[in-house]
Amino acid sequence: MPVTLDADAAAVYKAFQEAGRPAYETLTPDEARAYYFAARVVTNPEPPELAEVQEFAIPAPHGAIPARLYRPMRLPDGPAPVLVFFHGGGWVIGNLDTHDIVCRKLAHEGELIVISVDYRLAPEHKFPAAVDDAVGAAQWIADNAAAIGIDARRLSVGGDSAGGNLAAVVALAARDGKGPKIAGQVLIYPATDFTMSHPSHSEPETSVLLTHSVIRWFRDHYLGSAADVHDWRASPARAETLVGLPPAYVLTAGADPLRDEGSDYALRLREAGVAVTYRHFPGQFHGFFTMGKLLDQANVAAVEIGAWLRALNERDASCQTGRSV
């Protein structure tokens, strides 16, 4: 599929190339984490004003999972809806700080509480450690909804890239009784199929910032064996059925090796009877959502996702009270 970058995306890509930043697959995980962390200063937009940002820890069998709560200035009356967010970074890089501004924007635009979960990273913690943390964190948040001040009946999950993968997996696990009831899922250019067999994985035009070789680097650090590729907890597209999953907002980008597996997952969700809002940004590359300082389409996407979450939560609230909207 021919890909033409938007003018601003092309300029950003050129700047990254001219900066001479080393490819992640040539680095150690710690070095890659440092580069990814430093890039946020250049790319992240100014944050909106919030009422509260609070650090806390979620108990887990291995100790504790760091988390961060974002409370916007405007919330509906009563217990608030919540988005449990999982950051991107190939299950190897990224943390609460790399996606801090994204979470602030989603809380502001969605008029809901966002809780960002700092799951364990590979290769120190191989698959399924990140999945266990994501499912366990979502369950703990639902179980402690009253203390947090949230409405567990309006708990959605979301994330970008690897975080979108984890959000999809949490939704599947919850459907099958291994997690809390999920109201909605926000899947931002999600990784859904580790077989990497979709056409966009072999098209040179998609290998922009997220390249085919770095995806393999992430995969090799994250998965423990070849058999893990076919495990639905790693590849949610490999789940036996997608029937019974919650409404989904799925976003893809044109210049992205994950483009086709994201669009295919959206199609399969729709065919399974799931309400799906699918949004494609043909002139953007993988990772653009966190670059609102440089790419206005990132801010457009945040506004749209916020509107989708508000509509979802308003509809759920009306169903609970018996009102119509």
Results as ranks from 00 to 15, higher is better:
R71S: 11
G89A: 10
E46H: 03
S156V: 03
I65K: 00
P47V: 14
K14V: 07
R175Y: 02
L112I: 04
A167D: 01
E31R: 12
D151P: 08
R71D: 06
V131G: 14
A146L: 14
A80R: 02
V325P: 06
A168R: 04
Q17S: 10
S161A: 13
V157W: 00
W217R: 13
R21F: 13
A39E: 13
G262F: 03
V325R: 14
N144M: 12
F194C: 07
D77I: 07
L258W: 02
A227C: 08
Y222M: 09
A162L: 00
V229Y: 04
A171D: 02
P257Q: 03
G78A: 11
D260L: 09
F285H: 10
Y13M: 09
P123R: 10
D256H: 10
P76F: 02
E124W: 06
G283M: 07
G273W: 00
E271N: 15
Y278I: 06
E46L: 13
Q320A: 15
E52M: 10
E240N: 04
A134T: 11
S161K: 06
D151H: 05
E205W: 05
V274D: 12
E203W: 06
P247T: 09
S225Y: 02
W217T: 14
S202M: 07
A317H: 05
D220C: 11
K178T: 03
R154T: 13
A34T: 13
H87T: 10
E271H: 14
G177K: 05
D143A: 15
G88D: 00
A227Q: 15
Q17H: 08
A191E: 05
S161W: 00
T290F: 03
R268S: 08
R33C: 07
L50I: 11
P81N: 07
F127D: 01
M73S: 12
E18K: 10
F85E: 13
A239T: 14
A167L: 01
L96A: 06
A307V: 07
A60D: 03
G90I: 06
D100Q: 04
G164C: 11
A134G: 05
E124H: 09
V169E: 01
A307P: 01
L27W: 05
L242W: 00
V92H: 03
S213L: 09
I141K: 02
P72V: 14
A167G: 10
V170F: 03
Y222W: 14
D100G: 05
Q139R: 15
G163Y: 02
N299D: 12
R219A: 15
D231L: 15
V157S: 06
A298N: 04
A19F: 01
A272D: 11
A183W: 00
A145W: 01
G164K: 10
Y278E: 14
A7W: 01
V250N: 03
A275T: 15
E55F: 14
L166K: 08
P257G: 07
R279W: 01
S213Y: 01
L155Y: 02
I101R: 10
R216D: 11
K126D: 03
